[in-house]
Every structure is written in structure tokens, then in C-alpha cells.
Design a binder for these strands. Structure first.
Lengths: 340, 340
DNA sequence: ATGAAAGCGCTAACAG
DNA sequence: CTGTTAGCGCTTTCAT
């Protein structure tokens, strides 16, 4: 492993010039820049990250904090951030919080404080005041995805509006008895997502002059299995059964479609189903959904971070930037069948 | 952010002693160790990773290279490695290779060479000779999951044996016409997984005195959608239709079950289906599968790495360690129905 | 068991 | 535009 001085010698310049030529900071004549690059390539020189970080205070590394890895939404956002960071020469250091309170504490009180990251990306994590404070103390850029965070640039879909959009779609098709499979309180931590989506659902119903019926709401855990079980309960009484169900995630919506099938109900003839996410499998199942493009969310979050890291790079974004969503109507929704 | 000298002053010792007390390297009397720890806590001192790395050559960080993030198998392995590393005080720097050849090159020729990682974990990546060489040049421990890699400690299931086990299960139930949905050549890169699983399938058939029929083999892309389409083709001719299908992944097996349903075939009455993976949704769908426990694979890989990083920690593992798998019989498989 | 001091390899003033 | 030089904050001999 050659050091910067070997490159300097080969290129016939000082180490300072090598540093400038390779990092792009400071002016170097085109001719020497080329010579330095050639020398570096010839020697297979790669800058030592610890040495560079120690001297400059920059790490070229971003800390990404995620609640889970093995859920489609999170891993897809992560895929987007990873690709965007790589393109920009940044490493991604991943902190998964699935392990429980102790591990979570150690991430915020130890790992993130080691001066190993230039900035922190919080993916759908509602930070406690204490956690937020310890991040703010770092004096480093922070970007959040998934909900507003006091004093932090964030990116999020409007959960109320998304739920309203999905429900309004069912209303516009003529449905009056519309059930909802929402999130259970275990997910309430994350920006009150369950509450917000339920609020949007009830909003849309009221706007249509329909009083929400608590009997038609069931909480579940965002999985296919959970959606299936909730739907079974929602559909078990033929006389009180809804003609449409709005599920707060595509996976739950799929569970719902499977439950309908098992009960001998045809989708969309006997039951319309709409979800949220734009899951990769929604198309295959013909599921109508409000897509939220997680990979792009990840990329945009990276853009915001880089904007903060390199001021002047672009206009600063407002504190909370709304994210685009799109209703994609497929074959799981249709007007209700009027019984003769 | 206090430095090590602030801690030294508060504890009334030298910085060298603080370093020893906090890192555990070198002897420190119990009394001073406690004083140092107290001082560090009081000041909120956390070691600067770049400074420590520069001085010691160790980073307390592991580079993890994965082909994709948003597939259940990979993200679950990753979840396991992340948790295990965190527990051991290591950071995880993630390099996703989904982005194409250029990004892949930059990972191996730039990112991994920055002295930012103490070791590399290659998850189901068949490294090219060049990539492997550049890693070996780092003189750092490398552990691979998913297949043998020359000169590297690896952990892998025996794909041939797994496929044989799944197929033999169908044979033992009495099936003779057994189809297979395998991987297509795009996945061949990864340790010839498609080829190996097909070989195991054919092995098991021949052992039962059945000559494999190429007409009963279909390649697909490991997704539900791909499995569905392949199964439709396999099942379209009622007279030549197999009575059982072995799919090289659970997602494809699920696609297969859905295809059967759409064709009016009952699983397992008209068609038995078996997959590989132990996917989180296999239980819900009643899918018989050969489970391979990806989270544990991730944890074990970390153990192997740490063993190499801290010699004497445990016995060194042999070059390629086989991983446990388990046939889990559920309701998607049953003896074939003999037509009267 | 502890301290003094020499780097680790690079960057950033400061000069020129 | 380029060179000189003083650190960045730790760890680790080498003494004692």
C-alpha cells in the first residue's frame, strides 16, 4: 500500500499538491493534476480514510439508521440510498435497530458519536428527544424520512392525504361500506402512521357523508398474515360485510385478497381492495394501490444530505418536504355489485 | 467533544493509561481502570474512530458486500450480521452491488481499499479472480456466504443436497412426474446455484429410477411472478402435467401455488409443491420447504470473522463450513391422487 | 502498572 | 499554482 508521499515522489510534486489534485480541494494546474492522477493510478494508491478523516474532519461516510432490514419498504429505501451514496463517493454505515432497547441506546450513545460519519439519515424512525438531542449535538447534518422531526430536514408522504386518496377512490366507485385494516399500536411509534392513515380514511368517508363505523376497522401488523386474519374477521358476517377494504399497506392488502378468495368472495366483484406502498408484488396481484416509490425516497434523502454537506451545491430544501405518491388503479377495485 | 487528554487530566493519569483502560489492551490496575471509566463517562468521552484507526490500524468496522438489498434472503442475512456486529462493537459498512458493473468495480477498486474496514463479508457473491485478488491483497480476513471461494473461509448450504432432499420428499410421497422451476442463467454467477439445485433434483429422480424429463424443467427469476409464469407453462397440458413441482426458491413456489389455484388445481390434492428457503411467508401459505435460516447464517459469518480478527478467540473453522438446513413439511405436499 | 514521546498518513494554513 | 510545516487524536513502543 503506497502512501501519499510515494505518489508525490513519482509525480515530482509535494504531498500537499497530491492531496489537492486527488481531492479536488484547492487549485492545481491541469498538467500536474494529470501527472498526479497517473502516478496514483500507476501505484494503485488509494487515500487512507482514517488519515484523511483525522486531518480533515470529514469521513465521506454516512450513518443510516433503520428500524428493520427485512421489510420490503425499508430495504428498498436502503437500496436507493446505498446506490446514491456510492455514486457520490460516500460509504454507508448501517445501524439496524431491530435488536431492542439496549442496542438502540448504544447506537445513539456510542456508535454514532465515534466521528465516523459526516451525517445521519434516519429512515422512518421517530427519534426520542434524547436521541435527537444527541444527534444534534454532533453538529452534523441529519435528514429524516417518514415524518417531521423537530429541527431536522425531513422527507415524508402525507399519510393522512394518502389514506384519503385511497379511500376516496373507493368512495368514487360507489362504495359505502368501506372497511379498513390499519396499523396496530406497536407501529404508533413511527410518526403515528397508524393514526394518520386512519384519520385520512375517516376524513374521506365523512366528506362523502358516511359516518365511519368502528366495527369496520381492524388493526394488524403490516404483514400478509396479519392482513389476512384481520380481513377474515371483517368479512365473516355476510350481512354486515363491507364491500370494500382499504389496507394501510400492500402486504396487508394482499392478505385481504387472499382471505376474500378463501371465503369464496370474488375480488373485485364481491370486494374491492386498495393498499398503500406500490409493493413490487402489487402489479402481479392486480392490486390497486397508492404508490410511494421508496427507492426514490432514499435517493432524495441522499440529495438533501449532500446539499447540506456541500453548501452551495443546490438550494436548501424546506424543513419538511412532501413526497409524491400516485394512485395506481388495477383490477382489485371496481364499483360495488348492487344486489338485484 | 472532549479528547482523551481531558479524560486523562480528570482521572489524573496519562493519555496512554486512558487508552489502555478504555480499550482493554495492556494492563491497568483495577482502581485506575475504574477511575478512567468514570472520568470518561462524566465527560461523555467517546474515542475518535479515525484517530484510533490511524494510530492502531484497526477500524472496528466490517465491510459487507451484498448483491441486492430488497430480496428477503439477503436482507435477512444482513439483519443477522448487523445485529451480531453491533453486539461486538463493530460497525457495518454496506456495499450494495445492484448498480451495475461500474459501481461494482469502484467498490472493489476504491471503496474497500480505503482502510476503512478490518474485514470483508461477501454475501452470496461469486467474486471474480480479480476482485478476490484485490481483497486478498488487503491482507484482511474475508468470509463468504453462499459458496466456496478459493482461499477464503466460507459458509454455505449444499445446494445439491438441499435440492435432493426436497425432491426426495416428493418421491417418497409417491410422485413420479415431478417438475422443477429452477433459476435462470442470470443467477448462474452466484456459485452456479441454478445448476447445483437442478443437479440435486435430477440426482434424486435417478436414485428413484426416474429419468429426468427436460420438458418438466423451467427456469425463472426467483420471484413470485416468475414462478407463477413458469408454473402456468408447466401445468398447461392436463395430460402431461406433473403431479408435483419442486421450486428452487420459496417465492417461486408461492407463485406456483397461485398458478395452480388459478388453473383450478387443488394443492396438494392435484399438485404438490415444495420450495427452498424457509421464507417468512411459507408458513402462512402452508408451503413445504427446505429452510436455510438466513439470519443465523449472518450471525455465524460474523463469528467466523471475529475469530479471524481475534486469534485465539475460538477454534478456526475449516475452509468451507456446511450450513444446516431442515425440511419442513406443511400442507402443500401430499401423496399424488391416483385416478380411479 | 504507568508515563513520555514518537509516529500513524493525511490536510490545511501560510508563504511564496 | 505549489511547497513547507504543523497538527488531527489516538496508540504503542520503550523506559521506568
Amino acid at each position: 500500500m503506497p502512501g501519499i508521499d510515494a505518489v508525490a515522489r513519482l509525480a515530482g510534486v509535494s504531498t500537499a499538491t497530491v492531496s489537492r489534485a486527488l481531492s479536488g480541494n484547492g487549485h492545481v494546474s491541469p498538467a500536474t493534476r494529470i501527472r498526479v492522477h497517473d502516478a496514483a493510478r500507476a501505484l494503485g494508491y488509494v487515500v487512507s480514510s482514517p488519515a484523511s478523516s483525522l486531518a480533515s474532519g470529514r469521513t465521506k461516510n454516512i450513518g443510516v439508521v433503520v428500524p428493520f432490514l427485512n421489510r420490503w419498504f425499508y430495504s428498498t429505501v436502503l437500496e436507493g440510498t446505498g446506490a446514491a451514496l456510492l455514486r457520490n463517493g460516500y460509504d454507508l454505515t448501517l445501524y439496524g435497530l431491530a435488536g431492542g432497547a439496549d442496542e438502540r441506546r448504544s447506537v445513539f450513545e456510542h456508535f454514532l458519536l465515534r466521528k465516523r460519519v459526516d451525517a445521519v439519515l434516519a429512515l422512518t424512525i421517530e427519534l426520542t428527544e434524547r436521541e435527537l438531542q444527541s444527534l444534534l449535538d454532533l453538529q452534523k447534518p441529519i435528514v429524516g424520512i417518514g415524518g417531521p422531526l423537530a429541527g431536522v430536514q425531513t422527507l415524508s408522504i402525507d399519510d393522512v392525504a394518502v389514506a384519503r386518496l385511497a379511500t376516496a377512490h373507493l368512495v368514487s366507485l360507489g362504495h359505502c361500506r368501506i372497511g379498513m385494516i390499519g396499523g396496530d399500536s406497536g407501529f404508533e411509534l413511527d410518526f403515528h402512521l397508524p393514526t394518520n392513515r386512519r384519520a385520512g380514511y375517516e376524513d374521506a368517508l365523512r366528506q362523502a357523508g358516511i359516518e365511519p363505523d368502528p366495527q369496520l376497522f381492524r388493526p394488524a401488523d403490516f404483514t400478509i398474515t396479519g392482513g389476512y386474519q384481520a380481513a377474515r374477521r371483517l368479512l365473516e358476517h355476510p350481512d354486515t360485510r363491507p364491500t370494500a377494504i382499504f389496507a394501510a399497506s400492500d402486504e396487508m392488502a394482499l392478505g385481504c385478497m387472499l382471505a376474500a378468495r378463501d371465503l369464496g368472495l370474488d375480488v373485485p366483484h364481491d370486494l374491492s381492495v386498495v393498499g398503500i406502498d406500490g409493493h413490487e408484488y402489487a402489479e402481479f396481484f392486480g392490486l390497486t394501490t397508492v404508490a410511494q416509490f421508496p427507492a426514490q425516497q432514499g435517493e432524495r434523502a441522499v440529495e438533501m444530505l449532500l446539499d447540506q454537506l456541500h453548501p452551495g451545491r443546490r438550494e436548501p430544501a424546506p424543513t419538511n418536504t412532501p413526497l409524491p405518491v400516485e394512485l395506481i388503479a388495477r383490477t382489485s377495485t371496481a364499483p360495488p355489485t348492487r344486489l338485484a
